[in-house]
Amino acid sequence: MSMQPNGRPLIPWNRGRVIGQKLPLKLRDIFGIRVRLQLQRRVRDLALFNLAIDSKLRGCDLVALRVCDLAREGGLGTRAQIIQRKTGKTVQFELTEQTRRAIMDWINRRSLTREDYLFPSRQRPETHLSTRQYARILKRWVASAGLEPSDYGTHSMRRTKPTLIYRRTHNLRAIQLLLGHTKLESTVRYLGIEVEDALALSEETEV
């Protein structure tokens, strides 16, 4: 074992921590968490959970959404677009019917106006939910589904739908656009595509 100059053992900084990409949710996990939130009538959490999966946004962009970012005259649109904080580039995303319904239930519950943050902080309503609090909420979700919380993070929500789409279509370009990545290489790394995936695709292609 390595020792510090003072003679004490040198303990690795990452000892006991899970390092690397956080896991995406599987379909059974999504359904399990969603049903629990519905049964518990966790209106805010259900809206946040559904929107996190549909939007594929980074946590900092998700929590900073305002009602007007999604609202259209007479309700919510089926699509929305925002400018990403990290890249400054515009990204579009879809809003499924169940997500729109959950968001509208939340908006009506809190009587939110167009300029309000969609997920205001409970301590300071004039600000939005923090990314740290979002991360804590997510840990509760995955724990309720019997998953190991340390294996999941806010990027798990961002990766979930793209991973499912990729497994079904193998369309990297589509995933790149959905995630707002500038380079395709970034999408490959983000999805964690391995050599076996590439070989499997090659084997399926006859020329």
Rank of each mutant, 00 (worst) to 15 (best):
Q4T: 09
R8P: 01
L10K: 12
L10F: 09
I11M: 13
I11H: 08
P12Y: 02
W13Q: 08
W13G: 03
R15Q: 15
R15Y: 13
G16Q: 06
G16S: 12
V18I: 10
I19W: 04
G20V: 05
Q21R: 13
L23T: 02
D29W: 03
F31G: 09
G32L: 08
I33W: 00
R34Y: 05
V35M: 13
V35I: 11
V35G: 07
R36Y: 12
Q38T: 15
L39P: 01
L39R: 15
R41G: 07
R42D: 11
V43T: 15
R44F: 06
D45M: 13
D45N: 13
L46P: 00
F49M: 09
F49G: 04
F49T: 05
N50W: 03
L51G: 02
A52C: 09
K56H: 10
G59Q: 08
V63N: 02
A64D: 08
R66G: 03
V67I: 12
C68M: 12
L70G: 04
A71Q: 10
R72G: 02
E73G: 08
E73L: 07
G74Y: 03
G74N: 06
G75P: 00
L76T: 02
T78M: 12
T78W: 09
T78E: 14
R79Q: 13
A80D: 01
Q84R: 11
Q92T: 07
Q92G: 12
F93S: 06
L95I: 06
R101H: 10
